[in-house]
Write a protein that binds this DNA or RNA. Structure first.
Lengths: 125, 125
DNA sequence: CTGTATCCTCGCCGATACTG
DNA sequence: CAGTATCGGCGAGGATACAG
């Protein structure tokens, strides 16, 4: 869980695997169920349904079913859902700016604990 | 997972249960292991250790052990870790501003599907 | 005080098949 | 097309005890 870091404790589904991605997929306008499955590579219909239901419950998206055959359903961000785009953009910017640095540190962690930087280490033996 | 929403896929531990909270606990300066356990109500030492190790691995925090008895260890945000404070603040602001609205919608979802707003519904019975 | 070591639960998520 | 129904794995996270 992320939204509501320290201050707010109730479990908001934003830090889960798919919600943030769904929001981004909807930022340009309404999308159909099958249109969401494409960019969300690998998501199963069950999990997509669960995610969308939870978002609908939290008033982040609306679900509009058109009584046609074959059926057509469109999902769209609500005004509340759209307010998430700004903080999410801040995070995406962070990622673009700092992710490589983080990944480098992760790789370098091979020489982990008990191996302080050379400057702090007496000459070996 | 959250950081790196759609664009970046590698699993960064920020959307997990504790990392964001640890960052907030460290924003005012270095803290000891036991000083972190207090605000992070309910975290077990095992999980706190796991979280801190992962953050250290990703260069979000530093770990400094003082060779004393009893032992003292201090954790502190790195400059990289501090760059997360801004996007996190954006999210905390969002939470303060919009969480009640989300929670209200969640409660109202009792009258869920097939129950359009009263305005669109014919008088009951 | 700062952790490790085990064990275990719970629920997210995926695979697969089926329905209106 | 837009889901539902079942089944199952797996891993994060918690409980508890113990160690340096």
């Amino acid at each position: 869980m992320f939204a509501g870091c320290v201050r707010a404790t109730p479990p908001i589904r934003i830090g889960d695997k798919w919600t943030a991605k769904v929001i981004r997929c909807l930022e340009s306008g309404p999308r159909r169920f099958s249109e969401l499955k494409v960019p969300l590579r690998g998501i199963t219909p069950k999990v997509l349904t669960e995610t969308l239901r939870a978002m609908q419950r939290d008033a982040l998206i609306t679900r509009t079913a058109y009584p046609e055959m074959p059926p057509r359903v469109e999902y769209e961000l609500t005004s509340l859902g759209r307010t998430l785009l700004t903080p999410m953009a801040a995070f995406c910017d962070w990622t673009e700016a700092h992710l490589p640095e983080l990944l480098d540190a992760r790789d370098a962690y091979e020489d982990h604990i008990l191996a302080p930087p050379p400057s702090a280490r007496p000459p070996a033996r």
